[in-house]
Measured scan of single mutants.
Amino acid sequence: HNLTITQGKLFFHYNPKLCLSEIHKMEEVSGTKGRQERNDIALKTNGDQASCENELLKFSYIRTSFDKILLRWEPYWPPDFRDLLGFMLFYKEAPYQNVTEFDGQDACGSNSWTVVDIDPPLRSNDPKSQNHPGWLMRGLKPWTQYAIFVKTLVTFSDERRTYGAKSDIIYVQTDATNPSVPLDPISVSNSSSQIILKWKPPSDPNGNITHYLVFWERQAEDSELFELDYCLKGLKLPSRTWSPPFESEDSQKHNQSEYEDSAGECCSCPKTDSQILKELEESSFRKTFEDYLHNVVFVPRKTSSGTGAEDPRPSRKRRSLGDVGNVTVAVPTVAAFPNTSSTSVPTSPEEHRPFEKVVNKESLVISGLRHFTGYRIELQACNQDTPEERCSVAAYVSARTMPEAKADDIVGPVTHEIFENNVVHLMWQEPKEPNGLIVLYEVSYRRYGDEELHLCVSRKHFALERGCRLRGLSPGNYSVRIRATSLAGNGSWTEPTYFYVTDYLDVPSNIA
């Protein structure tokens, strides 16, 4: 807008934040220059609390790290170098490059900038070799853009010569660093050979998330399962459950009422301010606690030095998902009996873990797994792929695949051998790939016309006998059925096997 004052003059007093240069501009645009008398524009009460600059400061050096910015700028000295009290560095987070010096300023003089007072450097006698002032900004957020400017702080001049310097606002972004852990990993099994893994992005990506790394490792069953005799009275049979499938998407929606109208769909109840505040506090606490764990609990591995020492970490090797089922080394339970199943799973520490690289999504279907087997899954978020990966501390989750139908069934015939004193040795093959492992066998036998009897055969007993022995049988026709019990439950009964026990007292003698 054009402003013209045809008559009258300007009068400025007691404006401590208004620089004289701005008042002189007002004289020019209003056409009143030359009308004012000496005392109409006070030299001592206008701009006496402001830094009124008329020179431009330029930054000469900028260096960044993930949490620091090192700045240096060209030296500046007023005509009387004693008038320079120091520099004021202003900075704040700036997602967009549209910041002005006066953003967030209120009537009390406060604003949204963080201000650092910096002492002037030592003055050199040689004007050509003056030290460049600077400042190291610490405690910054990774991968965050900051708006920065600097200006001088000078003393009051009796001659009211307006001098000083100020830089333009520059924008500097800190470097990326390792992201925080992925949030809320959930693993479920939808079949006997697959596990579905879902997660949420890290709360602090500290860069642009480029991919996720998912490692999985087959877990050995508890050692007590191999040692305890679950045929003993009072000892509860062990059981394991597989990871249940995901709930429906509708039930997972946030901010939804727990109660549904019987007449149909209901609208979600909005969260109160107290609920939102509580969630923010919980989120802040979780982030602080995660940072504490990362800094205190997890110790970084030592990389190899120039002395030739090897990095103890196993090298990563990509495998196809079809090879995942046989990740671990199978060892027989008892070496003397080769027909026992290889369900003991000690994992070799030198073995390469299978892994998958996930790009542009937060889910993965891990296939080719062994049925009813526990897996430990390790999830890392990465925001750099080359020249070397920059990934987060791992988040861990466990899951067990679903049982395989008929995996616990005894394959092959049940054979028998009759000894003296009416002892019958029953023999059968253990299931080759049971659900988890076989903890015991149930032997059901009966003599024709009598009630059915049951015998429990422990895992250890089966390994020693290759089956079991029935003792003290009365003469007669017998039928026997056997079924295995694994961590997933009972298998199917075998087809009945028949044998006849004679009275050993009636056996004919070869003595003449």
Results as ranks from 00 to 15, higher is better:
S203G: 09
S203N: 13
S203W: 05
D204H: 15
P205T: 07
G207T: 02
I209T: 08
T210S: 04
T210K: 00
H211A: 11
Y212I: 13
L213Q: 14
V214L: 07
W216V: 09
E217T: 13
E217L: 07
R218W: 01
R218F: 03
R218V: 02
R218I: 06
E221F: 13
D222M: 08
S223G: 02
E224S: 04
F226R: 10
F226Q: 05
F226T: 13
F226S: 05
E227F: 14
L228T: 07
L228G: 12
D229H: 09
D229F: 12
C231E: 01
C231W: 01
L232P: 12
L232D: 15
L232V: 05
L232R: 12
K233M: 15
K233P: 13
G234E: 12
G234C: 11
L235T: 06
L235W: 11
P238C: 02
P238R: 08
P238T: 11
S239G: 07
R240V: 07
R240L: 07
W242M: 05
S243K: 04
P245R: 09
P245N: 09
P245F: 14
F246T: 09
E247G: 09
E247Q: 12
S248Q: 15
E249V: 14
E249K: 14
D250P: 13
D250L: 12
D250V: 05
N255K: 12
Q256E: 07
Q256T: 08
Q256K: 09
S257V: 11
E258D: 07
E258V: 04
Y259K: 09
Y259P: 14
Y259R: 08
E260C: 11
D261G: 06
D261T: 13
S262R: 09
A263D: 12
G264A: 15
G264E: 07
G264Q: 13
E265K: 08
C266K: 09
C267F: 14
C267P: 09
C269Y: 08
C269D: 03
C269T: 13
K271G: 05
K271I: 14
K271V: 03
T272Q: 09
D273K: 14
D273F: 15
D273P: 11
S274E: 07
S274F: 02
Q275Y: 07
Q275L: 07
Q275E: 04
Q275T: 13
I276H: 08
I276S: 10
L277M: 03
L277S: 00
K278A: 14
K278F: 10
E279L: 12
L280A: 01
E281A: 10
E282W: 07
E282Q: 15
S283N: 06
R286T: 11
R286W: 15
R286L: 07
K287E: 08
T288A: 14
E290C: 03
E290P: 03
Y292S: 07
H294E: 04
H294N: 03
H294G: 15
V297A: 10
P300M: 14
P300A: 10
K302S: 08
K302T: 15
T303A: 05
S304G: 04
S305P: 12
G306T: 13
G306D: 12
T307K: 10
G308T: 12
A309G: 13
A309E: 09
E310N: 14
E310Y: 15
D311F: 09
D311E: 15
D311C: 04
D311G: 05
P312A: 09
P312T: 10
P314L: 10
S315W: 09
S315G: 14
S315A: 11
R316Q: 10
K317L: 15
R318S: 14
R318E: 13
S320C: 09
S320Q: 13
S320F: 13
L321A: 13
L321Q: 14
L321T: 12
L321I: 03
G322Y: 03
G322C: 11
D323P: 04
V324N: 08
G325W: 15
G325L: 04
G325C: 14
N326G: 01
A330S: 14
P332W: 13
V334W: 07
V334I: 15
V334P: 10
A336H: 11
A336S: 10
A336Q: 08
P338F: 09
P338T: 09
N339Y: 11
N339E: 10
N339A: 10
T340E: 14
S341A: 13
S342W: 01
V345Q: 12
P346S: 06
T347S: 11
E350T: 13
R353V: 15
R353Q: 13
P354I: 12
F355E: 09
E356P: 14
K357G: 08
K357P: 09
V358R: 10
N360R: 11
N360H: 06
N360T: 08
N360Y: 07
N360D: 03
K361V: 04
K361E: 10
E362Q: 09
E362A: 10
S363N: 07
S363I: 05
V365I: 00
I366Y: 01
I366R: 02
S367Q: 10
S367L: 10
S367Y: 05
S367R: 07
S367E: 14
R370A: 14
H371V: 06
H371A: 13
H371R: 10
F372N: 08
T373V: 14
G374E: 11
G374K: 11
Y375K: 01
Y375V: 13
Y375N: 01
R376K: 15
I377E: 00
I377W: 02
I377G: 03
E378P: 02
E378A: 09
A381V: 03
A381G: 03
N383L: 12
N383V: 10
D385N: 03
D385P: 08
E388L: 11
E388Y: 15
E389S: 10
E389V: 05
E389D: 03
C391Y: 10
C391M: 14
C391S: 02
V393Q: 02
A394K: 06
A395G: 07
A395F: 09
A399H: 08
R400A: 08
R400F: 08
R400P: 02
T401S: 12
P403M: 04
P403H: 05
E404A: 02
E404Y: 13
K406S: 07
A407L: 09
A407P: 03
A407W: 07
D408H: 01
D409S: 06
I410Q: 07
G412I: 08
T415L: 12
H416E: 09
E417N: 02
I418V: 08
E420P: 14
E420Y: 15
N421V: 04
N421C: 03
N421S: 11
N421L: 08
N421W: 11
V423H: 02
V423I: 07
V424Q: 02
V424A: 11
V424I: 00
M427F: 13
Q429G: 15
Q429T: 10
Q429M: 15
E430T: 13
P434H: 08
P434L: 01
P434C: 03
G436T: 08
L437V: 07
I438P: 01
I438F: 03
I438D: 03
V439P: 04
V439T: 10
V439H: 03
Y441T: 02
Y441A: 00
E442P: 00
V443D: 01
V443F: 01
S444M: 10
Y445T: 03
R446P: 00
G449V: 02
E452F: 15
E452R: 09
H454P: 06
L455M: 08
L455D: 02
V457L: 15
V457S: 03
S458H: 08
S458W: 14
R459F: 12
K460N: 09
H461M: 12
H461R: 10
A463Q: 09
A463M: 12
E465W: 15
E465Y: 12
E465T: 08
E465C: 13
R466C: 13
G467E: 02
L470V: 12
P475H: 13
G476A: 02
N477Y: 12
S479Q: 11
V480C: 11
V480G: 01
R481P: 00
R481Q: 01
R481S: 04
I482N: 01
I482G: 00
R483D: 00
A484G: 14
A484V: 03
T485N: 10
L487D: 03
L487G: 01
A488C: 02
G489V: 10
N490V: 02
N490D: 02
S492Y: 02
W493E: 02
T494Q: 05
T494G: 01
T494S: 06
T497E: 12
F499N: 00
Y500L: 10
Y500H: 08
V501R: 02
V501Q: 08
T502I: 03
T502D: 02
D503Y: 14
D503H: 02
Y504D: 15
L505A: 09
P508V: 13
S509H: 15
N510S: 06
